[in-house]
Write a protein that binds this DNA or RNA. Sequence first.
DNA 1: CTTTATTCTGTAAGCGCTTACAAATTGATT
DNA 2: AATCAATTTGTAAGCGCTTACAGAATAAAG
Lengths: 333, 333
Amino acid sequence: MNIYDVSKRAGVSIATVSRVLNGNPNVSEKTRTKVLAIMDELGYTPNVFARGLGLGTMKTIGIMCSDSSDPYLANAIYHLEQQLRGNGYDSLLCCTGSSLENKRSCFELLLSKRVDAIILAGSKFVELIDKDNAYLIEAGKELPIMLVNGFLDAPGIYSTVCNDYGAVYYAVGRLLDSGRRDILYLYTSHSYSGLNKVQGYKNALTDRSLPIRRELIRQCAKDLTAAKELMEDMWNSGLRFDGVMTSDDSLAVGAVKFAHAKGMAIPEDISIIGYNNSILSYCTNPEISSVDTKVKELCITTVDTLMKVFDGGSVPAKTVIAADFIQKQTTNF
Amino acid sequence: MNIYDVSKRAGVSIATVSRVLNGNPNVSEKTRTKVLAIMDELGYTPNVFARGLGLGTMKTIGIMCSDSSDPYLANAIYHLEQQLRGNGYDSLLCCTGSSLENKRSCFELLLSKRVDAIILAGSKFVELIDKDNAYLIEAGKELPIMLVNGFLDAPGIYSTVCNDYGAVYYAVGRLLDSGRRDILYLYTSHSYSGLNKVQGYKNALTDRSLPIRRELIRQCAKDLTAAKELMEDMWNSGLRFDGVMTSDDSLAVGAVKFAHAKGMAIPEDISIIGYNNSILSYCTNPEISSVDTKVKELCITTVDTLMKVFDGGSVPAKTVIAADFIQKQTTNF
DNA sequence: CTTTATTCTGTAAGCGCTTACAAATTGATT
DNA sequence: AATCAATTTGTAAGCGCTTACAGAATAAAG
């Protein structure tokens, strides 16, 4: 069942059938409806490979993420896929894990599959593809590259980011203004957004003429138990804090566990703020106040931007989405 | 840059280059290494579209799931993608949501993309594609269909399922044997696995000559709050229970919230058992005892089976994976 | 040094589609 | 009725690859 069968049955040439297939306007209304009817009757589906060969594209977008089972990324993937399909594009998914080598090979895989664009979901990408980003910058010349929560200033590379700096600045500011003084900052990685977040933390302090204490800024694996244990270690070594700002909800859950273990009252003895407002922040008791990073909006914007790029429109290299602070039960300001 | 360039540069015909590309043994070692060297030198990547046209396949598997942001499915997708890529296949992802219409159109989309097989992740599929499954059964004649946690007895359709019946039978049995008598069973849907689970619950009772009380078997939206509120309604209307078995961790989290709200001690006043042993079950205090459904193993088996199908080997229509009960803090038997 | 079997390589015909270009049809204008 | 422009259609040449088949080269055997 191919274009020949349709053309024969409809009494036209394959060129005409192809034109109908591609919405070419140079087809009389009469033949168009006729051909469409035949296609329907025969249950004809154009062969995507042949189509791809001719057109050089298969309307497929590559999505790369480190780990699709991370609640935040899982959410992003869902929304990206929905938006892409809504625009007639398919999603080729690649989960890279965290090894640089794997990231590279996934990227090349997608390129070899001739995807029309690549979306890098998650901020841990940019700085890991390679040191000086030469690799990504080169790729950006070949096809559009969309960064979700990452930024790289180069032609063909477009970013949609959340206002992480502002979100943390605000949240930590509220903690400080409500009288907290020793605020621990736990983060998972020094990614693009990670750097912005920590800067928000620092500036919230300095803008209030408060000192930045390096011992209160700590990296931690994205793991409930790791966060809890790190805090216990810190506490047991004499360090004190009455507030915790985190770069991810999972760390905040660990903080709640820490507080429970120590018999501390939340938020009276210790305030805790999560990040991403994922389902995790709703599971604990008390529920964790968290920053809603608007994943859905981020994804919609990313895909919208991509479509504009395809249409040849001029689009901003970077779009910033405003985050929301969601007050739940681990803060009381 | 195409196969011609390579052949010219290597001083051989395109047929020979193609043979090298496809690992055809009818190439002398000398020419093979030479061609490979040239490919490498030129950075040649075969055009997948042309390849697909010639071979009729692009080594791509379609993965369908209702919602990739569900923790369980997100995990499944991750492992499926990893396994598939490890076997040289790409993953085309489609998130269908729950509407039947959407499921159908996703399925047809994947078919039209000429994927080599379709994996349906999540048990809510089989019974929703259509009433009598005629649709799926028909598709199974065209290409392999793999069901993860679903079952349908038809040629070309292969299932990998978790022993849900046994898992629930065991867990509820332990609750009963530890003296609990009024065990609430909350489930999200009457999917294939859903039916098996509830049967496990029932048989655990009847095998102990205990009555099945219909008012203790309740459906509930897969939502923390919904579960909590349902339980409150039941409790407030006078119903009493000292144990809760759920078909999903999210419901169990809701149960923990209910217990907290009522000031009940866990597990002394009420035992709670989750399902899937997802990260949610580790977030609460106390942490929720849960059934580990071995997603990774399930996915590995699914892909292994698929590869065997491709190789033409005879494979069982259904493979069962044993679940594990993970005792944490919401039970004490 | 033939002859024959074996291994290796090249030729050319697709795979199903797109599209430039030419040809045919239609309609408007004189 | 003849002319020309505009619209619609068909022809045929790719797109880059695979593979059946034929032909060349090599090796084994006489």
